[in-house]
Amino acid sequence: MKPTYGRVSRFGLMAYASSLDVIGCFGSSVYDVAILLQVISGHDRLDATSSKREVPDFANKLASIDNLDSKPLKGLRVGLIQETIGERVDAGVIQVVQSAASHLEQLGCVLSEISLPTFSLGLPAYYILASSEASSNLSRYDGIRYGKQVEAGELGALYGNSRGNGFGAEVKMRILMGTYALSAGYYDAYYKNAQQVRTLIKKCFKDAMKDNDILISPAAPSAAYKIGEKTDDPLAMYAGDIMTVNVNLAGLPALVVPCGYVDGGPSGLPVGLQMIAAPFREEELLKVGHIFEQTRRCFRFAPIS
C-alpha cells in the first residue's frame, strides 16, 4: 500500500524526493496492511506536509469472507487504464490483469476502460523531479558533521572526495541528473516543465476519478526481471516504474495485490494488480483489495485470513 502523500509523517525518514516520498506498508495480507497503516498514519507536528485528516479505523471495517454476499462490490465503478495495457507491456501481464478485471466484474463492479492522456509523460517528469529533489536532499551527506570525511587541504576537495567515496554509482548518477536539471538555463526546460506535467497528471486523475471509484492497472509492465539483467541499461530499469510513477506524482493512494502469474522461473512469476483511489480513500482500496484477495483464490501464496 502506498498511502496518500501526507497520510504518513516523513519525520525520521531519510529524504529522497521530499514531494514524492511516502512511507507505505508491505504485508502478507491486505488485513495486515490495514493494521499497519492504521498505526503509522496521522498528523505529525514535526512534518509540515503531513495531513491533519482524521484516520479511519482501516482494519475494523474489513468484512470477513463468511459475511460476503455474491456481489460484494456491487455498483463499484472501476476504470481500467487503457494506456497501461497497450504497447510495451508484456502480453502475459495484460492477460492476467484483464482476467483480474473480469473477476472484479463478477464481484459486482461496473468495469470500463478509461484513458489517461498524460500517462506517458509521467516517467520523464518523475525522474526529473525525483532526481532534482534527491540532489538537494543528499547535499547534507557532506562528511562535515558525521560520516566518513576524507581529509583534504582544500574545502572543494574535502567535499568532492568525501561525497565521491561515500555514494554509490546509481546515487551519483541521480545527483548529477538532478543538479543538471536545476542548473541555471536548464531549470525552465526540465524542472519547471516537469512540474507543469505533474499538474496535468493530477488533473487527469481527478477527471478520471469523477466517473470511477477506483482505477486499475498492472503494477509493472512485465514480471520481475533477473537480478543484474538490466544493470547496464538504466533507462530500461526506469521504464519498469512506468505504472506507478504517475500515481506518485499525483500523490494518490494505491494498493497492489497479487493477481496471477506469467510464465518464467521454476513456478511462474507473480503479477500485481494496482488499484488507485482518490486522495485519502485508502479505506476504499483496502476494502476492495481485501475482498479481491479473499475471493480470487487462483494464486498460491496469499494467505486467507
Binding site: 529524504a15 509540515a48 506536509t49 532534482s132 529533489e133 538537494s136 542548473s183 541555471a184 531549470y187 524542472y191
Partner: peptide, 14 residues
C-alpha cells in the same frame, strides 16, 4: 561569473 544556487521550491514546507 554568477553563482548558480539552483533554487527550487522547498518541498518540505507548504
Amino acid at each position: 561569473g554568477l553563482a548558480d544556487y539552483r533554487y527550487f521550491p522547498e518541498p518540505d514546507l507548504p
